[in-house]
Computed example of a mutant assay.
Amino acid sequence: MDTFEKHPDLPPPVSEVGVIGWLRKNLFSSPSNSVMTIAALYLLYLAIPPVIKWAFIDADWVGNTRAACTSGGACWVFVGARFEQFMFGFYPQAEHWRVLLTWGIFAGLIGLLIAPRIPGKIWIGSFTLFVFPFIAYNLFHGGVFGLPVVTTSQWGGLMLTLILSTVGIVCALPLGILLALGRRSKMPILKSVCVSYIELWRGVPLITVLFMASVMLPLFLPQGVDFNKLLRALVGIALFQGAYVAEVVRGGLQAIPKGQFEAASSLGLSYAKSMVLIVLPQALKMVIPGLVVTFIELFKDTTLVSIISLLDLLGIVQAGLTDPKWLGMTVEGYVFAGLFYWAFCFGISRYSLHLERRFETGHKR
């Protein structure tokens, strides 16, 4: 009987692995893809060098006035001269440390919450949700511990954008979950109220909600009662965004197999416990992409508060462009604002992908 000697497997061809393999698979997998890849590379070749030349090589970086912009490239002197205003609005310069301290504390708390194997996360989360907002407001507004009062009319720039988006997200998520549960309720009155609320708010543009909250709401309040303009905007954004979050969460609830609800009932769990311990964790895990898209839209929609004279990052940039000393800096201002919005949205999307991988429980082949 002939014996056959087993040889080790040969390595895959060089054209199928590594950089060459990736290029063949993704960019040159067919004649049409090859043509489109070459055309795209040619367009990039035409577009990128002029942009780099304008933004970096011929750009002006140092100076305090427009007279320093003489090279013909981008005038980043405009951004440098108004950088603090873009970040803090009209917040007093001597009090900027209060804003930086507040956001530093918030970043530290978020870091503790997302870091693995940190004990006491329940207490950290409770402190972040229920105690930190009062600390942040007192630091921002002042009037306590000898801190000068800074009215909300002086808040602006990136500071205001982060306040609007953070408060809107934190308030819209629990409101949306309650509305989603109410819409799936078997109680007709509760279900009708939730459906009416969701359809009403989803059928109205956010700009109309902000306008009504700022201009029309005071007309219906008792004489002598007034709400801060920023507070009105925060309430309007939270109520509006809560309706969209509700529909996203409802989609996750409908995707949960009926057997999960029956299993919870067979264990003798109440409705509240079955939702909190079994159903909602699975539903929220499934709708992470949808929630992230909703939150990114909220972050970008904060620019609409300019209609009620609140100057967020984009609003303060637009206000700076109307200064006669800096006329013609439109491109530089919008590029600066766009880069900030892109950086935050890209960071949120990357973290959502991390959460999806972390909570993935399916069996992949």
Rank of each mutant, 00 (worst) to 15 (best):
L179N: 00
N64K: 15
G21L: 07
L298P: 00
V19R: 02
W201D: 00
T294P: 03
M329V: 14
V131Q: 10
S309M: 13
V235D: 00
W54C: 12
N228G: 08
F295T: 06
A107Q: 02
N228W: 00
L158E: 07
Q93G: 13
F359T: 12
V331L: 15
P281V: 10
S15H: 02
R357W: 11
G290M: 12
G142K: 02
M36W: 07
P11T: 10
D312I: 07
V317T: 14
V170D: 01
W103N: 08
L190G: 04
I114V: 13
Y351V: 15
S32C: 14
R24Q: 07
V62C: 10
G236W: 04
V245T: 05
L113Q: 07
I52F: 12
L269N: 04
S15P: 00
L160K: 01
W123A: 14
G328N: 15
F299T: 11
L23A: 08
G143V: 04
T361A: 15
L160F: 08
R357F: 14
A246I: 02
Q241I: 11
V287L: 06
K229T: 09
I20N: 02
F28E: 04
A246G: 01
V19M: 09
K25E: 07
G203Y: 04
E332A: 15
V51A: 15
F220G: 07
I110S: 09
R350Y: 13
A74H: 01
A115N: 07
V215C: 08
A68E: 06
G142P: 01
P8T: 08
T322Y: 14
L327I: 15
I135M: 06
G347M: 13
G125N: 10
R232N: 03
A233Y: 02
S165N: 02
F295M: 07
K229I: 03
L280F: 12
L164K: 09
Q241C: 06
V144M: 03
L219I: 03
N64E: 13
T330Y: 15
L304N: 04
A180Q: 06
G328H: 12
A255Q: 15
A55N: 01
R82C: 14
L298S: 03
L239A: 07
M212Y: 03
T361K: 14
F227C: 03
I163G: 04
P31S: 13
G125E: 02
P174F: 05
M36D: 10
K25W: 05
K273M: 12
V79N: 09
I256H: 13
L353P: 00
V331Y: 13
F78H: 11
K325Y: 12
H141V: 04
